[in-house]
Amino acid sequence: MAASFTELKKHLYRSVKYWLCRPKPPTLVEPFSGPVVVVGSAPVSHKPADFDRTFKVITINGSQVVTKAWGIEAPDVTFVQFNQIEGTNTNAVEVRRVLSGERTKKLYVLLWRKGRERLEDGLKAFDYRYDNLEIVDRYKRMALLDLVGGVRCSELGADDKCSNGINAVLFALYNGATAVIITGINPASGGHIYNHANLARLHIQRDREILLRLMERGYPVFTADPTVSESLGLPLWDGKAPARQESESPEKSARPASKRATLLTPSLR
């Protein structure tokens, strides 16, 4: 009962703060104008058909190891969870290992609360470089799911939140991607491409729900992974020409206006 009351208070606090602050999602100075590939850390991924310099690339945590194998020295955007900077668990240590000596163009660090100077020092400690750095707080992340997915969520626990990979999909759509192709994002898989620890993946059910919701709302979301296409029903990316026929017009795929959201009340166990 006490735990339920605590969760309810947290839900109410975050909901009211979100309503008062009216946060905007992370926004690029120059919006995307073509297809965007979001590369996750699942063990299996594929380079999309017709991949060329017109695609923009977003990596998640240590998935830059995948795009480096594609010949990409610096992704256009990288999302890194705060714990990867100083965390001591296996995943954080492995993320720092594979990112050591690498660079990205735009780096978003999610939920970092220890000040920018300490963040910059933490990134220097494992020699990860960037052209531009921005911290994304909880409420900006909530705004992505609200404005693009039409879902309001107070992020009470892992089951309530979607993964950084899905947040990157929402980010790409919000910032004008004409098509979003995911690879290495599989709600049914476990483990990570950059280590052999076979760590459990979180947010499985929420990721599935949000991907299906984006399809229902007509967003141009595809997968380059056949098994994900089969399990979720996401259209398999066959190249630019088929995508132009299936996706919405550029006017509709630009930054979406706010739509009425579905309010998710917390599960009070």
Rank of each mutant, 00 (worst) to 15 (best):
V148P: 08
K114I: 00
D76C: 02
L12Q: 12
V65M: 10
V151A: 04
Q205M: 09
L212A: 05
G122N: 09
W19I: 08
E209C: 03
S45N: 11
P43H: 02
K17A: 13
L111V: 02
E117A: 15
D207G: 09
A254I: 04
S163A: 09
T78R: 13
P48C: 05
A125P: 01
E230L: 11
T178G: 04
N132K: 15
R118G: 00
S100V: 00
S15H: 08
T6M: 09
P256V: 06
W19T: 14
R213Q: 13
R138G: 03
V77Q: 06
G233I: 10
R201V: 12
V44D: 06
L264M: 14
Q64S: 14
V151W: 01
V180F: 07
K24F: 07
E155P: 00
A74H: 04
T67R: 05
S15D: 06
S249W: 10
S253Q: 09
T59W: 04
G71K: 08
L144V: 05
R244L: 15
S258K: 14
V39I: 12
G122L: 12
Y219T: 01
E248W: 05
P75G: 03
D137H: 10
K259N: 07
A74Y: 01
R96G: 10
A172Q: 07
N89K: 10
D76Q: 04
D238K: 15
V44Y: 03
S253G: 00
R255C: 11
D50K: 02
M142E: 04
V180N: 06
Y18G: 01
L144A: 08
C162T: 15
D159I: 06
A172N: 04
R53S: 15
T183H: 07
L268H: 02
M142D: 03
A69D: 10
A168G: 07
D159W: 04
I185N: 02
G176C: 10
K124V: 02
S100D: 13
R206W: 01
W70E: 07
E30A: 11
R208A: 08
A3D: 14
L234S: 04
I185L: 15
F126L: 04
K17L: 14
D76A: 07
T6L: 13
L214Y: 05
N91D: 14
M1C: 05
A143M: 09
A69K: 11
V57W: 08
